[in-house]
Design a protein around this nucleic acid. Sequence first.
DNA 1: GCGACAG
DNA 2: ATCTTGTCGC
Length: 224
Amino acid sequence: MKALLKHSWNISEQDAIQLQQQLALQVIHEDCGTPVEYVAGVDVAYSKHNGNLVAAVVILNADSLELVESATVEDTAAFPYIPGLFSFRELPPVIKAFENIKTTPQLVVCDGQGLAHPRRFGLASHLGVLLDISTIGCGKTRLIGDFTEPDLKRGSYAPLVDHGEEIGSVLRTQEGVKPIFVSVGHRISLAAAREWILKLAPRYRLPETTRQADHLVKTVLGRG
DNA sequence: GCGACAG
DNA sequence: ATCTTGTCGC
C-alpha cells in the first residue's frame, strides 16, 4: 500500500514544526466506524555500528493476533533525534516498509505518542494522516503531561493531562506492571484506543503489534 | 539559568 | 535507541 499524502522529509527543524502545525489540523479524534480485520504494528531499531535505521511493519489478524504479513526496510538516518520531532527521523523507513505490504490494515499501533505531544502531533498522528488510517500512539515512557499512578489492576488507567487538557491515558496492561502511555493518533477515540491496546496486550505489558514488530527488527539486526 | 525530553 | 551482569520471581 502507498501513503495517500506525501511531503518532503528533507526539511529544516523550523519547517518540520510548521508542517506539524499544518498537518495537525487534518487529524480526526473520533472513531471512523470501520470494522477492524487487520491490525498493524510498527517499530524502528538502530544499528549500533553504522547508525542506520531498520523499520518493521507487521500485519496481525485482529482476532487471533497471528502474523499474516510483514516487511522490513533499512535506511540511513536523515534527521536527528529531537524530542517533539521524532516522526521526521523514524517515519521515512516506516512509509517505505508499508509500500511493500499488500494487506491494508484498518488500524495501526505505533511505538510513540499521538496526541500526547507538544503540538498535539506525535508520530502516531503523523502516520495516521499520511496513510489516512486509524492509528494509536502507544509509548513506553512519557513525553509530556502530568498524571497520577493508576491502580495496580490490569485495565486501570489515569488521565494524562497537559495544561488542563486530557491528551491521553496512562494504562496498566498487566497487574502490577509499569503502565504504558496511550494516546489518540488518527480517526479513533481515546476510549477505543485503550480498549484496543488492552485487547492487543492479553499477556504482556506491550501490545502484540509492537512486540512482534520489535522482534522482527531485532532479528534483522542480528540479535533477536 | 536549570531540568525535562517518545526512540 | 544502544551499551551492559547479575538477580529476583513465576
